[in-house]
Write a protein that binds this DNA or RNA. Structure first.
Lengths: 231, 231
DNA sequence: ACCTGAACACCGTTCAAGT
DNA sequence: ACCTGAACACCGTTCAAGT
C-alpha cells in the first residue's frame, strides 16, 4: 500500500468515508469495519475520522442513509400511486426491490438492528409504503397493523435463524440418522425436503422462494382484512 | 462486596456460571455480560471461567439452552399432539408461551442471532412444532414453508425496527408538524393512531396486540393453504 | 483438578498538540 | 480548518505458573 502525499490524496469528505466503509463491510463483513481499518483504507489516521463524524454510530447511520438511497433508486423513486397495479402488487414489487439491494449488502440488517435512529431516506421509504396502502383505500389503523405484521420483511429481509452450525452443505444420511433420535419430526421433514430438492440447504435458509411465500401470506391476509373493513 | 474465603465459596460449576450470566444479562443487558464482570459476580478471576467453558460463545449457548428449558416448562412440556385443540390453536399457545419467556429475557433474540449453533433444547422446541403441524395433517413441504414464514415469530419475537430515536414518549404536536413536511403519509397515520390510543408509543413497538395480529395472519394463511392442499 | 497473574492483540474514544 | 500521536479504559483470550 503506497504512501501517497497529502497533495495527491483526495480530501477526506463524509461521502468518501461512507463509501469506503460500505465497500469494507461488503468485502469483509461488519466485523472488518473498524475505525482503524477504515482510516487505513482512506490513507489517514483513525482520529481524523472524528473530525468529520462524532462517533462510529454516525458512520453507521451514513451507511443506512446510503442503503436506502440505493433502494429508492432500485424502485425508480418512492411513488405513492400504484399506477396500473393493485396496492398489494406495487408494495410487493417495492419490497422485493429492497430485498435485491440488501442481498448486495448482507450486513445491513445487523446495522439496522443496532441503530434505533430513523435516518431520513429510511423514513421516506416507510412513508412511501404508508402512502401506497393509503392509495389502496386501507384505513390508517389497518396500515399501522400492516407495518407491524410485515416487520423486517418490509425492508427485504426476515429474521430467520439458521439450523446448521457451519452453514455448509446438506445433511448426509448419517447426520439425519443421528438427528432422528433426538428430533424425529424435524429429521423426517428434512429427509423429505432434501430428497425433493437437494439444492436446498438444511432448514432456515432465507432464500427467495421462502421469502416470497411468507410475504404473500401476509399481503393476502392484509387484503382479506381490508375487504372485511369495507363490509 | 465482601471477599469470601475459598472454603465457603460454592464450587464453580457450569450451572452456576450460566445462572449468574443470565441474571447479569437480565439486569443490565447483553453489554453488561463480559467475562470479567461475570467472574467478579462469581467471586472468581476471569480466567477461571475458561476452565469450564472453551470461550464466551459456549456460555452464550448455555444461556440459550436454559432459555428453551424455561420455554418447555412454560408450555408444560413439548407435546406433539394438539389434544382437544386444532393444530393452529396449539401452535399459537406454544408460541405465545415462548413469547412470555422472552419478555423476561429481552436480550435472548440478540444472542440467537449471534449464535448459529442449534442448542439441543432449541432443536427439541422446533421438533415439537413440526410434530404439532404434522399431527394436524400438514405436508412436510407446507410445514417447511411454515417454518420459514413464521421466522422469528416462532420463537416469540419479531424483528421490528423502532421508529423513534430515544424510545421515550409519544410524539408531541410539534414533532408531528415537523414530520408532516418530510413524511406526510406516515405523520397522518401516526396522528390518527396516537389520537385513538394515546398509550401506544410511536410506531414499531413490538407489543402484544401487534404480535398476535401478525401471528394470526400467518396461521390463517397456513391453514388456508393446508385446506387447498386437501382439495 | 482447579484456579490465578501477567500479558497480548485488539476495540472506540479523549485530549492536547501539531500544521 | 483539518489532521495527528500518545494515551485511556475497556474487550476476549493465550500461556505459563501456581496449589
Amino acid at each position: 500500500m503506497p504512501q501517497r502525499s497529502v497533495a495527491e490524496r483526495p480530501a477526506l469528505t463524509r461521502e468518501r468515508v461512507v463509501a469506503t466503509a460500505m465497500s469494507l463491510a461488503d468485502g469483509g463483513g461488519l466485523d472488518s469495519l473498524t475505525m482503524r481499518r477504515l482510516a487505513e483504507e482512506l490513507g489517514v489516521e483513525a482520529m481524523s475520522l472524528y473530525y468529520h463524524f462524532p462517533n462510529k454510530n454516525a458512520i453507521l447511520d451514513g451507511l443506512l442513509e446510503r442503503t436506502f438511497a440505493e433502494i429508492e433508486d432500485e424502485s425508480g423513486g418512492f411513488s405513492t400511486e400504484a399506477s396500473g397495479d393493485t396496492w398489494q402488487q406495487a408494495l410487493r414489487d417495492r419490497i422485493l426491490g429492497a430485498r435485491r439491494v440488501l442481498l448486495r449488502h448482507p450486513w445491513v440488517p445487523a446495522v439496522m438492528e443496532s441503530r434505533s435512529t430513523l435516518v431520513p431516506t429510511m423514513a421516506r421509504y416507510i412513508d412511501a409504503n404508508v402512502g401506497l396502502m393509503r392509495s389502496g383505500g386501507l384505513s390508517h389503523d389497518l396500515i399501522h397493523h400492516a407495518m407491524h405484521a410485515l416487520g423486517s420483511r418490509q425492508y427485504g429481509f426476515s429474521q430467520e435463524l439458521t439450523l446448521d452450525g457451519d452453514g455448509s452443505s446438506s445433511p448426509g444420511d448419517q447426520d439425519l440418522a443421528r438427528m432422528a433420535e433426538m428430533v424425529p419430526h424435524l429429521a423426517a421433514m428434512l429427509q423429505e425436503v432434501v430428497h425433493d430438492d437437494p439444492e436446498s440447504t438444511l432448514g432456515w435458509c432465507d432464500d427467495q422462494t421462502e421469502f416470497e411465500f411468507g410475504l404473500d401470506i401476509l399481503l393476502d391476509g392484509l387484503a382479506r382484512r381490508h375487504a372485511a373493513e369495507e363490509h
